[in-house]
Design a protein around this nucleic acid. Structure first.
Lengths: 209, 209
DNA sequence: TAGATTGTTAATCGATTAACAATC
DNA sequence: TAGATTGTTAATCGATTAACAATC
């Protein structure tokens, strides 16, 4: 267990992820230095919060200049677990499954999709760009072969729990659930729910004020 | 401006949305009463938090029995702005756009999708179930006709800002951005970013501990 | 009635912000 | 040097929890 990471609360971690995406963009735009004030403005925070958050990292800025963009990117990458390939599989080759599979952004951040599965015989074997849809029966085998750690549930709600069970049994340790079902996972497996509906509800709350 | 709603912090509101999805399920399962303890267990909170949150609503429970599921559902529905149709349009008929269009869950919660747009001549006019893909040029007209309030950006990042501008100009007041671009919207327009990549990063952080 | 559960107050906890010496 | 920005401490703020009288 990483000592630095243990001191990072869920709430700080989420901001670190956002700093990461921000410095990634700044870096690609050629920025060399970024101050706590600039980061704060980008993410609608105070510069105090930014400095506090960054102080948790094994990294220092420089007075008068701020933080070195490239170094900060590298440090955040490491802390967030993005300094490696995180082999991922997708279960369900419907629209959501395909969307994730083809979205470059995930791959670019190390979420390398190793396979996509479905149980529909009409879909199995079909190609999606360089992938072909595999039979869900091969899940365990493929997950082990590729040492996949992350699994995305993109099946209809009714099949979500069964899919989660299969993923956990195959050795997946992190599940992203894009279905609307509430599912249970065994200890040692981390579950994150997609929040698209919650996001829409957030919009509904504020626009109907 | 609704007085009850103004006292509700963003953090409480997000939990109210989760209570809503939970009591919606309980109701469909035939549950009549639910206690703060039960809700707390479902959402991994304390019963104190649940009672505090619900005390912000114009609604009371009953000692020894808890909260009436159906009434709580109705109240939450009203507070969250889900007691009406929230007419929605989708821009971009790629996989994400289609996935949202066909996902029953959104429609069931009042996010009635009025139209889906694209700028690709090869897609315009094509059918997706009972919809046909419309020319983005008709956006303003269609948004006004249906009094659409919510717009979903499901176009490639490069076109996201332009799409946001068009949506805002057409009178959309809430935007859900599924692209990875950082976009700006005028005052009076609420912007919510999809967090799928952030969710994946959250998984990466914890599974690589 | 006895017991369970609410609503609410007060205490605690943690997150955010302000402030400022250190430093480049 | 003068001025800007960090890192860090202490203060503030808000969210969560504990506790308990009221009540069904």
């Amino acid at each position: 267990m990483n000592e630095v990471k243990q001191k990072i609360s869920a709430c700080i971690m989420q901001r670190l992820a956002r700093y990461y995406l921000c410095v990634q963009r700044l870096d690609s735009q050629g920025a060399v230095w970024v101050s706590s004030q600039e980061l704060a403005a980008e993410l609608e925070l105070t510069s105090s919060t930014v400095r506090q958050d960054i102080s948790h990292l094994d990294f220092s800025g420089i007075s008068k200049r701020g933080y070195e963009v490239e170094k900060l990117k590298t440090i955040l990458c490491g802390v967030l677990g993005l300094d490696r390939i995180n082999p991922t599989v997708i279960v369900g080759a419907g629209n959501f499954g395909r969307a994730l599979l083809l979205h470059r952004n995930f791959r670019e951040n190390g979420f390398e999709i190793k396979a996509i599965f479905d149980k529909d015989p009409k879909l199995i074997g079909k190609n999606i760009e360089s992938y072909y849809i595999q039979d869900i029966k091969n899940l365990t085998e493929v997950v082990r072969e590729h040492k996949a750690k992350i699994g995305v549930i993109a099946v209809p709600s009714a099949a979500a729990q069964e899919t989660a069970d299969n993923l956990a049994r195959a050795g997946i340790t992190g599940i992203l659930n894009l279905s609307t079902a509430d599912i249970q996972v065994p200890r040692g497996c981390m579950l994150v729910h997609s929040r698209i509906l919650l996001d829409l509800i957030r919009l509904a709350f504020y626009i109907n004020m």
